[in-house]
Every structure is written in structure tokens, then in C-alpha cells.
Amino acid sequence: MIKLQKIHRNFQVGDQIVHALDDINLEIAQGEYVSVMGPSGSGKSTLLNLIGMLDHPSSGEYYLNDKNVTELGEVEEAQIRNKNIGFVFQAFHLVPRLSAAENIELPLMLAGIEPSIRDAKVSLALESLNLTERARHKPEQLSGGQRQRVAIARATITEPAVLLADEPTGNLDQKSGHDVMDILEALNQRGITLIMVTHDQSLGDRSARSIKMIDGRIESDNLNKIDHATVS
């Protein structure tokens, strides 16, 4: 479903060129659970942004569902992000002046979906993430765990095929972090492709497949023997 071929991503910093991604070849199938680990600056976020089409490779090809999406127009890319890709960030990135429900609604608003259809989806999402009571609350009135749950609801409201999570528990205490992991894994078990960056080994070990990155290269790519991830 996701296929990266000979992907390079260079940044010019001063008169130096940083190879954030250095010849990445990677295939990820529909429904996989992949964790990406590696030291800081090894290119994990850059990889995720590239898969999420927020960024473009300096060279190489990106195929999404067998379609070459390396050089699409801005409008088409936005549409793919809206429909097929969900982002969950370490910093949550909720819009502070909008309520939890409105934040969740945002991707549907951007896509121009009618309120009648939106309302049903949003209340379902709120319910499944135990946020119904918090629907009218502003982000500042929510705990970190609740905020990340709102962010997950928002990322999945358009029912994307891929969920990209960049250190989703990085700003959470252990308990909330585990809750969030449980939610993400439950989503994966219902078929979503989950790609998660983390530097927490114990979290990395929970995934079916672990990718380790160093200096912009994939150092290792292992399948873990974990019971709950192999349940179909």
C-alpha cells in the first residue's frame, strides 16, 4: 500500500547538506502496525511527513495504493491527506478556540461535508473515545490524555487508511500514554495502517514490525513476535 523507492531528502543548512533521509526503500502493507525508532535527528519525523505528503523527497518515488504520488498538485495532495491520511502529533495541535467536537469536525468541514452527516460521525467518534461529556469543552479544559484522544478522533474522522503518529505519547504521563496506545492499537486491529514514531523501546516492542533508523537510513526492519498484533 505504501511503497518508497530510493527516497532521499536533503536539507541545505548553511553551506552544508543534511541527508535527513538517505536512500530509503520501504514497503508497508494495508493494516500493518509499524513502529519507527531511532535516535533524535535520525530522520523519523521526516519519513513520517513524507509518507503523510506534507513533505516531498529530493529524489526517489513514493507509491500510495500503487499510484505514483511523488509529484501531485497541491489540491490533489490536500485531498489525499484529508481522505486517506490521519496525523497524530506529540503536541496534540488542537485549535484552542474550538470545542472538542468542533476540533474533531475540522477535516470534514475542510472537505465541505454537510453538517447533518458530520454530526452523526462526530458523536460516534466522541462516544467511542469516551469524550461525549467533553464535547463542548475547549482544549484548555481538557487533560493531556483527553486532548490526544480528541486529536485521534480528529485524525480518524474521515476514516483514513493510514494513521501517522509522531511520538503520540511524548507529552503524556504513563497512564494516559497507555490509554492512547490502547486506542491506537484498537484502531489498527480494526484495519487502519498504523505507523508510529517513538523512542520508547517498550512501546516499540508492542508493534508487529519495528523499523530502526540511524542517520537517515533504515538500520533494521524486524517483525516482532507479538500475539496481539498478529490477530487478524
Binding site: G52, L54, E74, V75, A78, Q79, I80, R81, N82, K83, F87, A91, H93, V95, L106, P107, L110, A111, R154, T158
Partner: peptide, 16 residues
């Protein structure tokens, strides 16, 4: 600025 980045990530277009 962060909100603008977010809207782009959620599928917002330049024009929006």
C-alpha cells in the same frame, strides 16, 4: 502558525 500547519495536515488547501 501552528494552526495553519495543522489545517494543511488535515487536508486544507492553500486557497482555503
Amino acid at each position: 502558525t501552528a494552526e495553519i500547519g495543522l489545517i494543511r495536515a488535515l487536508g486544507g488547501r492553500h486557497s482555503q
